[in-house]
Design a protein around this nucleic acid. Structure first.
Lengths: 189, 189
DNA sequence: CTACAAACGCAAATAAATTTGCATTAAGGA
DNA sequence: TCCTTAATGCAAATTTATTTGCGTTTGTAG
């Protein structure tokens, strides 16, 4: 299987092997016990290079987690919001239950810098990692609104679709496709 | 304000100062950059003792986080499930928005060992830290059932009350009392 | 093809964390 | 009160992580 996304530069190449090594370690043993040294050894690159490029393990692991979580699949566009949300929720559920799915979300949470002080004004975009995902949801909702369907606010999708799924991933509760399906329906009820 | 929960033993005394020091550090700078050394210095105890008692920083921080999150307030018992859930949700919201509230949940998530492999069977009890809380909810639901009220399953409370609240805490989204209130109502709808 | 600069590897130096051995203190029971 | 044991402090030893200096490789522009 040819890797399309790996243009020339040596830089990109080493980044690829480093990310692969780090991701493998995260999937295998979780983020907690991983040292910069481990990743370097597994990737076959000098630890020095990792320190120079990413500074510390947390930064590197966070980038890896973001990278994995944002591996974006095209948004469903079935013609009805309900159907769109269903398949989208199922897709997220599948991603979380996949081998090494939830470890990356756990890693992101653990490595992401603490959110700002009060958090009085903004929405979820404080964690930039979720930016792309939120954009996708917004597109889906906008399309529905354009069709004349009643679309829930973005924050509702976060609270009642994303939150239960991710929370279950965090604590290791089962995440079935049926559950994702029900969440979508419940959101539109 | 006298601290009632601090019985004699030197052991308990040092544990208290260590927990206080660790909690203060977590509240101030988050869990990510805290070393065993820092806690020892702040608590005024030898780092050696901390290593001997807790082994490593993660273990200690996790215990501290659990300790804080389980500082149990008595469950509301107003006579109606709806009212109970409302006040209970608001109480959690208040705890999360309080200074240093969400950092402890973030710490727990970051330090808790990765949940078991498949997670096919069980419920949320895999993370033992939530055990007490879940017990409390179960009591509340049982009381309602005993009164003849229709009570939602425990997992629904987790998915639709706890999840949105804690998820918002994780990402730094605003958590208002009104929001908690609405979650309770929505759960019973 | 050549020259340049960024990224890299390696080894040494440094700094920090963690362990270990031993003396001391304090709690609880006889 | 005295004795026993667990917990602690302290300093030294050890390991591990991180930084630094320098020469080498490798893209890329000219």
């Amino acid at each position: 299987m040819p890797r399309s996304t790996r243009p020339g530069g040596r830089t990109a190449r080493t980044k690829a092997v480093v990310f692969e090594a780090a991701a493998a370690l995260v999937a295998e043993q979780g983020h907690e016990a991983i040292a910069m040294t481990d990743i370097a050894a597994r990737a076959g690159v000098a630890a020095t290079s990792l320190y120079r490029r990413w500074g510390d393990v947390r930064t590197l692991l966070m980038e890896v987690a973001v990278d994995r979580l944002n591996a974006d699949s095209p948004m469903p566009n079935t013609g009805s919001l309900r159907s769109d949300l269903r398949t989208w929720a199922r897709r997220i559920a599948a991603g979380l239950t996949a081998p090494g799915g939830s470890p990356f979300f756990r890693t992101l949470v653990a490595t992401a810098p603490a959110p700002g002080p009060a958090a009085t004004g903004g929405d979820m975009e404080r964690i930039t990692a979720f930016g792309p995902r939120l954009q996708q949801i917004a597109v889906m909702l906008d399309r529905a609104a354009a069709r004349g369907e009643a679309a829930p606010p973005l924050m509702d999708v976060i609270d009642h679709l994303l939150a239960p799924l991710y929370m279950r991933a965090l604590v290791g509760a089962p995440i079935s496709a049926a559950f994702a399906h029900d969440l979508a329906d419940r959101l539109l009820a």
